[in-house]
Amino acid sequence: MELTTFWFILIAVLWVGYLVLEGFDFGVGMLIGLLARNDTERRVLINTIGPLWDGNEVWLLVAGGATFAAFPEWYATLFSGFYLPLFLILMALIVRGVGLEFRGKRPEAMWRRRWDAAIIVGSTVPALLWGVALANIVHGVPIDSHKEYVGSFFTLLNPYALLGGLVTLTVFIVHGSMFVALKTVGDIRKRARILALKVGALAAVLAVAFIVWTGFDQGKLAVWLLGLLAAGAFVGAIVAIFRGREGVAFTATSLTIGLVAIMLFTGLFPDVMPSSLDAAWNLTTHNASSTHYTLVIMSWVAVIFTPIVLMYQSWSYWVFRKRIGVQHIPMDVLTK
């Protein structure tokens, strides 16, 4: 296998990791507005992701860094071209991260309400926009002969990309609900299951529409097969949560998100950013990549350290495996 292909796969894997992991903590962030009924319940939700969300976000940073290192032209065209959506995502991630860490640091209701708003908005905006961005990358955007994006902000808001955004938004809410059902006890757990079913029905319709559109758009058999598997996994998730099998349900939504991402990257390959103006101007794994030497070094680093990261990150999930409920939330804020 060529190293450029290996790095394309590795970046796809980093995106799968990011979307599966941060997908549920974006979902939990949105559930603060959709599911929790009082401050203690909101704290239960936040504490299910408290020790984990920051590690999840690092998957994005590494995906970005890996793209910079392995495909500098892809990184440059994508980040300068998708300027305003990325700016909005950054603003959202900032207020969300600070909100998650600062919300519990003061007891005042006003303080907490404001950070709740920051967490909700900060989770919703990237949940929507990452779908929009990924759909645009795969579908193709106007790129000229100098590898520069020549569309505008509104070029990116086309129907296919917006549908992609709605898919990530709704699927993340379902994924977050599955996670909450798996990680909590009491009333909130039951309500999370019900919400997963309700939003799940809507998400299923959107996701199937998106998969079919992508299938016709890309015209590859593998894309159709992966799309079919993703849809199957999502149906499985809905059935599992209906029958109260929370672990199975969460695994199935994780699979769904992973398979949709793999479907998109399979559709993309061997391009990394196709041009909608002229296929000769497509950015590909070849014309966007770093030198062989750089890829060799980065491959060694990735092969050695990725398993180590996976090991300790899994261990941290194991440490915080216990379910929590309202009875576990300590009352004192400043003294502990």
């Binding site: 940073l61 860094g65 392995a70 750089t294 070094i297």
Partner: peptide, 16 residues
């Protein structure tokens, strides 16, 4: 584009 072949690697390694 100009330095990515060199500059990107330490950034990616920093993340990982």
């Amino acid at each position: 584009r100009f330095v990515g072949d060199i500059f990107g690697a330490p950034l990616a390694i920093e993340g990982l």
